[in-house]
């Protein structure tokens, strides 16, 4: 039983990941594969929408750490958006807002790529 799911949509040259449910040490590998596949397919502009994500542990945060340097090295980025307070708290505890671009709305994240 997996209480985590990912939906992906391509928006122009940007790949948007919609996360739902609970992202922990059990479900993080699923996200890691999805992002790795997108990068392998040539996508370097990634937006992760957390609107339907109820929970994240450091295993989930670690996934973004794996890829951030790689996508930035090729002019891309991983932008994080629409987090519930509970999820943002975990990012904030570790100082992630210093390293990652976190926006309130998905449109803002997309606009930053097209700017």
């Amino acid at each position: 039983m997996s209480k985590f799911s990912i939906e992906q949509k391509t928006n122009g040259s940007t790949e948007v990941f919609y996360l739902k449910g609970f992202l922990d040490a059990h479900t993080a590998p699923e996200l890691e594969s999805a992002i790795a596949n997108a990068i392998e397919a040539g996508q370097h502009r990634l937006v992760v929408n957390f609107n339907d994500l109820e929970y994240i542990s450091s295993a989930g945060l670690g996934v973004f750490m794996v890829f951030i340097e790689e996508v930035r090295a090729t002019g891309g980025d991983i932008k994080l958006t629409a987090m519930k307070q509970k999820v943002f708290t975990v990012f904030d505890l570790l100082g992630f807002p210093m390293l990652f671009d976190i926006t309130e709305k998905e449109e803002e994240a997309l606009a930053k790529f097209s700017a």
Binding site: S57, S58, A59, G62, M65, V66, E70, V90, L93, L94
Partner: peptide, 12 residues
């Protein structure tokens, strides 16, 4: 820079 995904849990 090291693409490290672990080591945050204890800090949390």
């Amino acid at each position: 820079a090291q693409h490290r995904k672990g080591g945050f849990g204890v800090h949390i």
